[in-house]
Computed example of a mutant assay.
Amino acid sequence: MSVGSNGVLAGLRIDLRRLHETWMELVYPRQRGAGDTVLGTWQPDSQLGRIGYRVWSALGVPVIALVYPLVLLGAFVRFQTRRIGRTAASLGLLGVVALSLVVWGGLAALARFQLDLIAGGFLAIALAGGVATVSAALAVGTKSAGGRVTTVLLAYPFAVTAIFLPPVVAALFSKTLAAVVLPNSTALAQWLLDNALAPVGLAETFSRTFELEGLGYVIMWLAISFPIGWALGTLVSLADLVRPTE
Results as ranks from 00 to 15, higher is better:
Ala203Trp: 00
Val242Leu: 03
Gly229Thr: 15
Ser185Met: 11
Leu222Gly: 15
Gln190Ser: 10
Pro199Lys: 06
Leu212Arg: 04
Arg243Trp: 04
Thr209Lys: 06
Arg208Asn: 15
Val242Ser: 03
Leu212Ala: 02
Ser225Asp: 07
Ser225Asn: 06
Ser207His: 09
Pro183Phe: 06
Leu202Gly: 06
Leu192Asp: 02
Phe206Val: 15
Asn184Val: 11
Trp230Met: 01
Leu192Gln: 05
Ala196Arg: 03
Leu192Glu: 07
Ala203Leu: 00
Leu232Gln: 04
Glu204Asp: 14
Gly233Ala: 11
Leu192Met: 13
Val218Lys: 08
Asp240Cys: 08
Asn195Phe: 13
Pro183Tyr: 06
Ala239Gln: 04
Gly216Met: 08
Ser225Tyr: 05
Leu202Cys: 07
Pro227Val: 03
Ser185Glu: 10
Ser207Ile: 08
Asn195Tyr: 14
Tyr217Val: 01
Trp191His: 11
Thr186Trp: 09
Leu235Glu: 00
Arg243Glu: 12
Ala239Trp: 01
Thr205Tyr: 11
Thr234Phe: 07
Pro227Asn: 03
Gly216Val: 05
Leu235Met: 05
Thr234Leu: 13
Ala203Thr: 00
Val236Leu: 06
Arg243Asn: 13
Gly229Pro: 14
Tyr217Met: 01
Leu197Met: 12
Asn195Val: 11
Leu232Lys: 04
Ala231Trp: 12
Arg243Cys: 02
Phe210Leu: 02
Val200Gly: 09
Ile224Ser: 05
Gly201Leu: 07
Val242Asn: 02
Gly201Ala: 06
Ala196Cys: 11
Ser225Val: 08
Leu193Phe: 10
Asn184Arg: 15
Leu238Val: 07
Val200Phe: 01
Ala187Val: 09
Ala231Asp: 05
Pro227Phe: 02
Leu202Asn: 04
Leu192Arg: 03
Gly216Asp: 08
Leu197Ile: 00
Leu235His: 01
Tyr217Trp: 05
Leu235Gln: 00
Val218Ala: 11
Ile219His: 09
Ile219Cys: 09
